[in-house]
Design a protein around this nucleic acid. Structure first.
Lengths: 189, 189, 189, 189
DNA sequence: GATGAATGAGAATTCATTCAT
DNA sequence: GATGAATGAATTCTCATTCAT
């Protein structure tokens, strides 16, 4: 079935879901999500067959958006540190600028309702980001661990850094630097 | 007193909650938790006034248990790296040995139902662990960032490491070493 | 609008509530009320946000209906006794004809769940009935007591009379006369 | 089964029930009643086989106490008005002095849980009060109505009067006079 | 006899989803 | 296609009553 109707409404539903999942978790009622999107309760189910599908698409969509955002302006031939910093920097900026999306992701990540398929789709969307790590990985001291482990550590530190920025936005830049330093030193030389 | 509230039952409820929250999130029904604890639905509410209280006590209890476990055998006068390794090691072992508790914590950490007070109680229970970090922090390159930031990074890397161990238990020791290495290099020299 | 909230259903709920509250008091389960209205349990809450609201609206609705019924055919310029008798007569007839509504009111009147606001709304609905008493009051021997006291005495005697009519409907007219006589003599000359 | 154990405890339960039924209606939980009586939840059921029995005994007890109170100092050979006034006066005083008992009775009177037997026992306890009315009744204009009707009117006006005294205790005596006047004029020649 | 933990049948809501309009 | 009323299973919590201590 081709995507029905208004793309604007679809986006409104996703945007409303971001807000509600961020604050209430995946238990946020579909009726509230619909209300936040200014559509009727039943209309939501024209766009998403059921709540699980909405949640999964939300997950994949945010992940894809983040992936694309990170890669904007990425210089594949820059030095390894520059590439790492680019990813770190854009990721942090995205998370600090869209705290609700970040919060929603936090909830979705731990939810049993996100299928394996969605997680894989998320990885796919992140493919280029992962690729950018490969060289660094191959050369670093973690070369015997899966690339995924380095990726995950990076992400964990991004998450930690964003948590602190969220609590204390004034020091955004300090945290951004400090977090990257831990990562870079950590996996480096 | 007719019959005192049985500590065994209280533990059974918490243990059942660990299992169900780990797999279903905080939306796990109290009826299922009670069933898992082999008590009647109503009995649960003799032990915990309501679901929120159960969830919060679960959070604090696990956190306290983890804190105590980490500190067992801790040598306060050992070298700084030894102390760091002790904490890392015991934390990883705990998480690898009790994957359900770790999973439950993951859910509880992001839940809106865990009160500020519980989070603070969790910190208190973790006080000695935090203290053990202080010297390392004062001397390291992160001395201008809050100690909490270093702690959180440590925890984030523990979490990441445990995630990988859970997926691939055979390589438990490899991950354990690799994760610590990232942290130690990251915040070190 | 998909389907408007059906006024017929709303009335069916209120009618069912009348029956159940009359016989079981305000403890009558919403599930039974819904069943009696031939709707699903959940549907009731589309019409009334919660049980208290149902109970309060029931109170106000019955009171308003009674007020309107009493005033039908009221001749404001008739003699004072005629006016009093009109009110008495219509009130008694209403109570005798709708014993369940009367019984429900008995329950609602003593319930802690009826808010002050509803009681005031009830008075408002009864405003014209009260007004009809004013002249009688101003001239009678109770002029030094609040009008409300005379009103309440009237109502108490109506209630008593209806109680007897309910037990012994054959003598409806006797009781109707006797009750009014007590009131009229009581507050009169 | 003879009445077990401490009469003091039995009274404490009834006293606690008065308070709770007055404020919460017959839905007041037995656990709260027990707590108010400073006994254990289960102990209540040693004194009253079940909640209905407690409620019914409460009804009969209050009614009996009221009956006895009214008759204290009653002069059977006084004039008819004096006898009526005596009853009125003592009843009003009792109700004004024990507002919780009066409130509890209001709730019990409309409850489906009070059996016919209890109502009859209540009448029995009131027998002497009723008897005092008989002569007045036989002589008055209501002689063609059941004595019970006159009794009930009296009680209804007592109730009304007490309601007003409860709201405005300062005017206790005014209301007391006014209420009796309505009754006396009402049923008198 | 007193206690209060244990029980499980309700009770009032809530909510994803369907379907008449 | 959009709407939101309708549904009823599921959820949290309450409460009278029993019974082990």
């Amino acid at each position: 079935m081709a995507r029905p109707l208004s793309e604007a409404k679809r986006q409104a539903i996703l945007a409303s879901a971001v807000r509600l999942v961020a604050s209430m978790g995946v238990g946020a009622p579909t009726a509230k999500i619909a209300y936040g999107a200014e559509i009727a309760e039943g209309t939501l189910f024209k766009y998403f067959a059921n709540k699980d599908e909405l949640l999964n698409q939300l997950y994949v969509t945010i992940k894809a958006e983040l992936g694309a955002t990170i890669l904007e302006g990425f210089a594949p031939h820059a030095g390894i540190r520059e590439r790492g910093w680019h990813i770190w920097s854009r990721w942090i900026d995205w998370g600090a600028d869209y705290p609700l999306k970040r919060q929603a992701m936090r909830q979705l990540r731990v939810s049993e309702r996100i299928t394996q398929a969605s997680k894989e789709a998320g990885h796919t969307a992140f493919h280029d980001v992962s690729a950018a790590f490969q060289q660094a990985h191959a050369e670093g001291p973690l070369r015997d661990q899966p690339l995924a482990f380095m990726n995950a550590s990076f992400e964990a530190l991004v998450e930690t850094t964003l948590e602190f920025i969220a609590r204390d936005p004034q020091r955004r830049d300090d945290y951004k630097q400090a977090g990257f330093q831990i990562f870079w030193n950590g996996v480096g030389s």
